[in-house]
């Protein structure tokens, strides 16, 4: 069985016939050559596949492509606007919030979710906000610093 769906990925509309079993993350990685969304585990633990579905963070390895029908998906590639890095991207860069970079797209989008729901988080809230995203390189500390800086920058921008 194939099921017709339409999605918007980073502002671009797509129509596809997909197998119901296809995971959203596989659809995203197959659609338009945007491979920033990563797969790090198979049990919804690591968060490397985090994307925004209608602005809300989800783990795209734990969603079927058919479930995303009619939604607008934002991946790491869609976060920067008009050639301007998103304050989170800028802050991860400034604060050395990444090393190998594999967890980074998901981590940034998880941080995006945190700041969407809590624009002024404490360090403890940042740590809890990122509890579903694993990084094996940084020990998280510079990620916490980056999110703190991004939160301040985003508040300044309003």
């Amino acid at each position: 069985m194939k099921f017709p769906i339409s999605v918007t990925l980073n502002g671009r509309p797509y129509r596809r016939e997909v197998e119901p079993r296809q995971l959203l993350v596989h659809l995203i990685r197959d659609l338009g050559g945007v491979t920033g969304t990563k797969i790090g585990c198979d049990t919804s633990q690591c968060g490397a596949c985090t994307v925004l579905l209608d602005g809300v963070a989800i783990k795209s390895c734990t969603a079927l492509a058919v479930q995303a029908d009619g939604t607008s998906i934002t991946t790491i590639e869609g976060l920067a606007g008009d050639g301007q890095l998103h304050p989170l991207q800028e802050a991860f860069w400034n604060k050395h919030g990444l090393q190998c970079g594999y967890c980074t797209p998901g981590m940034i989008l998880a941080a995006h979710e945190l700041l969407r729901t809590n624009p002024q988080p404490s360090d403890d809230q940042i740590r809890h906000g990122l509890e579903g995203n694993m990084c094996r390189c940084t020990g998280y500390q510079n990620i916490i610093r980056a999110v703190r800086e991004a939160a301040a920058a985003m508040r300044r921008k309003g």
Partner: peptide, 23 residues
């Protein structure tokens, strides 16, 4: 000096290509 990393722009934008990203 603790300058920002040169590798980061591609990594924070999803432009980096790891092995599985190649088709």
């Amino acid at each position: 000096s603790g300058i920002r990393r040169r590798e980061d722009p591609r990594l924070i934008t999803g432009a980096a290509t790891y092995t599985d990203d190649y088709t």
